[in-house]
Design a protein around this nucleic acid. Structure first.
Lengths: 242, 242
DNA sequence: GGTAATTTGTTCGTATGTATC
DNA sequence: TGATACATACGAACAAATTAC
């Protein structure tokens, strides 16, 4: 691709090279795991010093896009996974559809009283008992999201056991009499990762996470599940089709 | 609302109070600008020491949700604004629909050559000239998002002038012959705010921003506009209906 | 298995452009 | 205008890790 470096144009040379690299990766020239040209080759290609290339690579390493191994080379660390959001958002289907291997495990359950926020979302009484299930979702061995889901306990007494057995909310809810469900509303925000999720998601303190809150409803449009998901922002990209 | 404090349950009391406050604000009990009960009243309500309440308020102040003024009281600083995402996403319509006052200003324009990423999104040749327009959008006096939009220059030579005059992409594109447009795809991720946007969005370094990338298409489904928006994560919440 | 070649990492120094007071 | 600080860019040499032969 023909890209020239604009000197004295108000944009630092190292930044222009970083942008070029980013565009090449986004365009698919370098896929996840691919080895980049050596620093010297890139420097020769743009007729700049190797330090300048190193600065560009350092910037993208900081973003988690590249990984440089001494003696081996520089590699594309992670093209963020696309995560479409729609009425039929199902983690395992999304991941399998992108030639990746999904897995997950339940990391905790509990019973608690509904606060105003969750009671409103699930259309139940404040203070009524709730089931809480926390799950960690992993793609190709890398943790990508942690989800906390709440259900009305009175309606799904056997849900925790069913989920523990099947490992799938879709299956567990079917065993509890919910034939199908769909996503009604999704709210997206961003926060800094908290200390618990640092360990679970294996990301550094001070990095951002996407917060996705959603409500699933049964075919009668009755709320079934309220979920708050924290996603490693450097490993996932939400896609909203419209 | 009946909420009890669970002592010795692994969750610090101050955190439980902070969560309660957050839920009340999210639920709408306290709207933006509302004065909270005094620290003493909250302390009495939960039968905890005032220091415990202060710790909860300090945590939410750090998140930018509350603002405590000595001698006056504690106030809700910012209920995050809802920002629906769909085919007809228009900033001013969204803001006006929530009883808030939108404004904005153009903070820069330029001409640059299309890199691989943007050329692909706009279906044009790499290296062809692009118009770039940067805008700052403000709600009730508070900056909420910065957007950078790119257009094919050959197709819309008079766009910058039209936008400067009308202050609206919808109007400016109409003057350039695009009767209507709709949003085709929206990609959402999160990053840490960069040094430029710190000043524009008036947020602290190290805070997260939502990155929203979108493509607008004309009625013939031809790409017209590619936009990359950075939103202050503590002031906005994306809502995806499905 | 040993050695040379390759590639990234580190540390000097020098020069220039830019922003601020 | 000058002084100062800081970021940017280049150059040379060497260290450390990995790979290839």
């Amino acid at each position: 691709m023909q890209v020239k470096i604009d000197r004295g144009a108000g944009i630092a040379v190292w930044r222009q090279i970083a942008e070029w690299l980013k565009a090449e990766i986004a365009q698919g020239t370098f896929v996840t795991g691919a080895k980049l040209p050596t620093e010297s080759d890139i420097a020769a290609r743009f007729q700049v010093n190797r330090h300048t290339v190193r600065r560009a690579i350092a910037a993208l390493t900081g973003e988690g896009l590249l990984r440089a191994d001494q003696g081996r080379g520089t590699f594309v660390a992670s093209t963020p996974m696309n995560y479409p959001i729609g009425a039929r958002t199902r983690f395992s289907e999304i991941v399998s559809g992108q030639d990746k291997t999904p897995s997950g495990r339940m990391i905790g359950t509990g019973v608690e009283d509904a606060d105003a926020l969750i009671a409103g979302q699930l259309q139940m009484q404040v203070g009524a008992p709730l089931l809480r299930i926390e799950t960690l979702r992993v793609v190709d061995g890398t943790p990508v999201l942690v989800g906390t889901s709440w259900f009305e306990q009175a309606r799904f007494p056997g849900l925790v056991a069913a989920y523990a057995e099947t490992g799938s909310f879709t299956e567990a809810l079917r065993l509890c009499g919910v034939e199908d469900y769909s996503r009604r509303e999704t709210r997206v925000s961003a926060e800094l990762v908290d200390s618990q999720d640092i360990a679970l998601l294996e990301i550094a303190a001070g990095q951002p996470v996407l917060i996705v809150e959603s409500v699933n409803v049964d075919p009668q449009d009755r709320p079934v599940q309220y979920t708050r998901t924290r996603m490693a922002a450097d490993r996932i990209q939400l896609v909203v089709e419209s």
